[in-house]
Design a protein around this nucleic acid. Sequence first.
DNA 1: CTTTCTGCAAACTCTTTGCAGTCGC
DNA 2: GCGACTGCAAAGAGTTTGCAGAAAG
Lengths: 155, 155
Amino acid sequence: MDTIAREQAAQRIERRLARLGYRVTQPRRRLIEKMLAFETYFSSDSLSVGEPSVGRATVFRSLHVFLRTGALCQVVLEDGTIVYRVADDGAHHHHLVCIDCDLVEEFSSEFLEAALAHAGAAHGYQVTGHRLEIYGRCDHCPTEASSGGRAGARG
Amino acid sequence: MDTIAREQAAQRIERRLARLGYRVTQPRRRLIEKMLAFETYFSSDSLSVGEPSVGRATVFRSLHVFLRTGALCQVVLEDGTIVYRVADDGAHHHHLVCIDCDLVEEFSSEFLEAALAHAGAAHGYQVTGHRLEIYGRCDHCPTEASSGGRAGARG
DNA sequence: CTTTCTGCAAACTCTTTGCAGTCGC
DNA sequence: GCGACTGCAAAGAGTTTGCAGAAAG
């Protein structure tokens, strides 16, 4: 994301804050800018680090606000750690997580949505939501196969 | 799960511990028994509570061991909280979480596995794993629709 | 008898809360 | 000017670690 794109993304997030009745303050602006600088996911800690002008508590409070307004989403890593990522799209989506370069991409699929609803229904559930993370290697990272090993499917 | 089934499940878990080189100790037995008494998921805290004979640290250490041996699996709740559940099946599976009664069922589906691998591949990922939780109402819980409201699909 | 495991207590990390002052709108 | 927001500091969960003794195999 280049400087101009980040600027636009920041304004989109700020407008949404304002529209939902939250105030666009200096610390929030700072954090939004910092969030957007991450190419992929980040921890609450890494947002806080090197930002002496923003209190720790404010970071956590802002994280909640951003989550509520859909500016951020949680990503569950393979080891169960929960981290954050700027939501390209405020709507429902899933994550593709590269286990090598830590890139996270959003994606959505009507087909998958339907398949999940159907899977739930088959077990007697009326599905109201779900959470899906797919782990693998993105096409910029050499696979085990191409480096001599063998890629194993865990799923 | 009745007493006999729990006893069998406990033995299965203990055998697996032994086979993998872990010791079957008194505290671990206690915890296994307690885990099996939960009809659904539980937190690290609820495992610890009311078990004065087992130290807090031992609970956490055992949790890691059980996770490593496949006796337990993590379940991510809708709000991002991570809890544990006895794995009926040591193999890969997904979770159906009832948002009313907190029941968690395991399920697996070759079809879904293939669909997820395919979805990843479509985005250039070589899929090595995934994590899926489906939230909804199980067939023992009245739906909003049947109690006058309307069930909304979030996914 | 060796090695792993345990309880305890202390240390640590991560997150939340209370409060008086500040700042957006 | 009002009310939401902020930084600070302290409190509060939740989890990990060091260690000497206990127990499994």
